[in-house]
Design a binder for these strands. Structure first.
Lengths: 349, 349
DNA sequence: TTGTAAGCGTTATCAG
DNA sequence: CTGATAACGCTTACAA
C-alpha cells in the first residue's frame, strides 16, 4: 500500500541501499543519483516507515506518559497543562508522545508501564505526580528506563532521580503567612491525599507558619481532599460546620479551592469578605474564579517542557548533569483572600 | 538488553518458532513444551517487542490524536475530557494513543498528521473539533486512513465521514429560549471563531429563537471569541459597554462564559441578577462557577469513548455501519441565568 | 509436534 | 560511488 524504498528502487533501477543513502543525504552518492532519487521519492509520495526505523534503530523517539486514572482524576487541568508542555517540547525535538490510560487499580497501572517500557514502545517516561514509595519509580529504575518526574520522592525517601518540583512547603507557608498577616487565626487546611509525595511538605509549611506566628496548631482544622472540586466542597463544608470559628481555608489544589468557595457560599458566607480561600497550582482558570483565586503558582507548562528536554538529553547522551530542581513557590494574591472579616475569629489590628 | 524469543529458544533448546507459538497459545504445541516455554519466559521476564510485532503485522494498534496548538489552545478542558474518553476506550481494546503537538501554523499541523499516518505509526485518527473545509479531513480521506471526528462538517459540506456531534443549533436555541422566557430581550451572543464547523449552527439557533419569539435580530449583539476565558472577557466587556441595554449573554464555550462573568462583575453588575450568562460544553468546573453556570451539556467523555470504539471497529472490520450521530442538546439550568433583573431591558410580565 | 525460511521496511557493514 | 547481505524481533506458511 504505502510507498517503500523498494518501490523507489524499482522505479529508478538503483538498489534499496542506494536509495536509503541518497535520501539520508549521505555524501557517498553521486549528486545526479541523489537528485533523481529525491525526485522519484517526492513524486511517489514516499514517507519513511517509522516503525521499521524504530525496529532497526532499537530506538523509538517516543516518550511515554500515563494518564491519571478515571475516578481519581487527579487535577485534570494540571495534567493537561503538563501534557502540553511535554508534547510541545517533544515535538520540537522530533519525538512523539505515547499516552496510555491507567485503568483502575495499581495492578493495571503497572501493566501500562510494563507494556510501554518492556514492550519497547518508548525510550523514556515522563512521570506525573510522584507518590510516596512510588512503585512506578521502583519499576523504572529496575528496568533501566530513563525517566523524569514532576514532583520528588516522599519524605525520607531518596529523590535520586531526575525531577522538578516546586517548593511545596514554602508555597503553603507563604499562603498561611499571608492569611495570618491579614488577621486570620483560625485557618483550615485541605491537604491532598496521604499518598502524594508532596502532602507532608505542604502540611509542614502550614505548621511552620503557625508556629512562627505563635499560633496554635490544631489537627482538627486539617483534613484531606481528593484534589477535585467535589472533594474541596465536602472538606470545606465539614470543616466550616464543625468549626464555625474558621475564617480562612487553604485548599491544596485550585480545583478543591473552587469547591471550597462554593461551600462557603452555600453556607451563606462570602468568599474574601467572610472567609478567605486560597488554592494551589494557579491553573489558567484560577484568575477567572469569582472572586479571583489567591493561589500558589506552579509553572506547569514549563515544568513539562523542561522535564522533557532533560529526558531527551538523557536518552540521547548519557552524560547530562542530574536534574534535581526545586523551583521557588510564588503566591499570587488575588481577591479570594482579600477583604477582612470583622468576625470574632479575627485579630484586632 | 531486553529478553527476546531468541533468548528463550536458547534456554529451552526449542526453535524460535515453537517459542512464538507456545506463547501465543497455539494448539499445535505439546502441553509439556508450552508449559516449559511459559515458565522460562516468565522467569526471564520476557515481554514481546511491540515494535517488531507492529512491523510484521503491518498494524500498530495505535490511534493518533493531534493536540490543539499552543496559542489557540482550544478549550483545554474540552480537550482533556475528550482525551480521557479516547484513552480509556482505547486501552480497553488494547490500543495505545499517540499524541502529537501541532506546532504553529497549518503547514506544521498537516505535517503532524502526515508523520503519524504516512509514517505508519497509527492505524487511525481521532480528530477533535472539525473546522470548515478542514484540510485534515481531506488529507485523511485521500490517504485512506480510518478516522472519526468530534463535530461534523461545516454548513453545506458533506459530512460523509464517521462523526459524533451534538445538536449545536438546538443547544443555543434552547439557551436563547430560556433567556427569553426569563424576560430577556436584549441578548448578546459570543460565537466561536468563524472557521469552526459548528459556528454557523449555533448562530442559527440564536436567530431562530429570536424569530420565534418575535424579537428582532441585531448583528451588533453578535461577536466572536477565541473560546478561552480571555476572549470571553473581552467580547462581553465590549458588548456590554457598547450596548448597555444588554441583559443576557450567551457564550459559546464555558471557558468564555467564565471570562464573560468576570467582565460582568468588573462592570459592577451581578451575574444572574443583573446580567444572565450561559455557556456551552458543561465542563466539570461549570457547576463550581460562582454562580454555577447555566450551560449546554456535551457528554464529552462519552463522545471520546464512542468515537474510539467506532474507530477501532472500523480498523478491525471494514463493515460497520456508518457513524453519523447528532446527540440531542440539553440545557442545564443553574444560577448564572436565574434571578430576574428589573432593568429597563426587560419585558413586563 | 517441531523446525526452516521468508518477510515486514529500514539501516549498517563490507565488498566491489 | 554502488550493491549484496545481514540484522532488528516477530509471525506465518510450508516442510519435515
Amino acid at each position: 500500500m504505502a510507498v517503500t524504498l523498494k518501490d523507489i528502487a524499482k522505479h529508478t533501477g538503483f538498489s534499496i541501499t542506494t536509495i536509503s543513502r541518497a535520501l539520508a543525504g549521505y555524501s557517498d552518492v553521486s549528486p545526479a543519483t541523489r537528485q533523481q532519487v529525491r525526485e522519484v521519492a517526492d513524486q511517489l509520495g514516499y514517507q519513511p516507515n517509522l516503525v521499521a526505523r524504530q525496529l532497526q534503530a532499537q530506538r523509538t523517539r517516543t516518550l511515554g506518559m500515563v494518564l491519571p486514572d478515571r475516578d481519581r482524576t487527579v487535577a485534570t487541568d494540571f495534567f493537561s497543562e503538563l501534557l502540553r508542555g511535554v508534547s510541545d517540547a517533544a515535538s520540537q525535538a522530533d519525538y512523539d508522545v505515547l499516552t496510555s490510560a491507567q485503568v483502575y487499580g495499581t495492578e493495571d497501572e503497572m501493566r501500562a508501564y510494563r507494556r510501554m517500557v518492556g514492550g519497547g514502545r518508548v525510550d523514556g517516561i515522563i512521570l506525573a505526580r510522584a507518590r510516596r514509595h512510588d512503585p512506578r519509580i521502583a519499576y523504572l529504575k529496575a528496568a533501566g528506563c530513563p525517566f523524569a518526574v514532576s514532583g520528588r520522592g516522599g519524605e525520607g525517601e531518596p529523590s535520586d532521580f531526575p525531577h522538578i518540583d516546586i517548593d511545596n512547603q514554602a508555597g503553603v507557608q507563604q499562603a498561611t503567612e499571608h492569611l495570618i498577616a491579614l488577621g486570620h487565626q483560625y485557618i483550615g487546611l485541605i491537604l491532598p491525599p496521604e499518598e502524594m509525595a508532596y502532602t507532608a511538605d505542604r502540611h509542614e509549611g502550614y505548621r511552620c507558619a503557625l508556629a512562627q506566628a505563635g499560633l496554635p496548631y490544631r489537627t482538627d482544622y486539617v483534613t484531606h481532599g481528593d484534589l477535585l472540586p467535589g472533594g474541596g466542597y465536602q472538606a470545606a463544608h465539614t470543616l466550616m460546620t464543625a468549626y464555625p470559628t474558621i475564617t480562612a481555608i487553604i485548599a491544596c489544589s485550585d480545583l478543591m479551592a473552587f469547591g471550597a468557595m462554593q461551600a462557603v457560599q452555600v453556607l451563606g458566607k462570602r468568599v474574601g469578605r467572610d472567609i478567605a480561600v486560597t488554592g494551589f497550582d494557579d491553573i489558567p482558570l484560577a484568575q477567572y474564579a469569582n472572586p479571583p483565586l489567591t493561589t500558589v503558582h506552579q509553572p506547569i507548562y514549563e515544568i513539562g517542557q523542561q522535564l522533557t528536554q532533560h529526558l531527551i538529553a538523557l536518552i540521547e547522551d548519557e552524560t547530562v548533569e542530574p536534574l534535581r530542581a526545586i523551583l521557588p513557590a510564588a503566591l499570587i494574591v488575588r481577591e479570594s483572600s482579600q477583604g477582612r472579616a470583622e468576625g470574632q475569629g479575627l485579630r484586632a489590628e
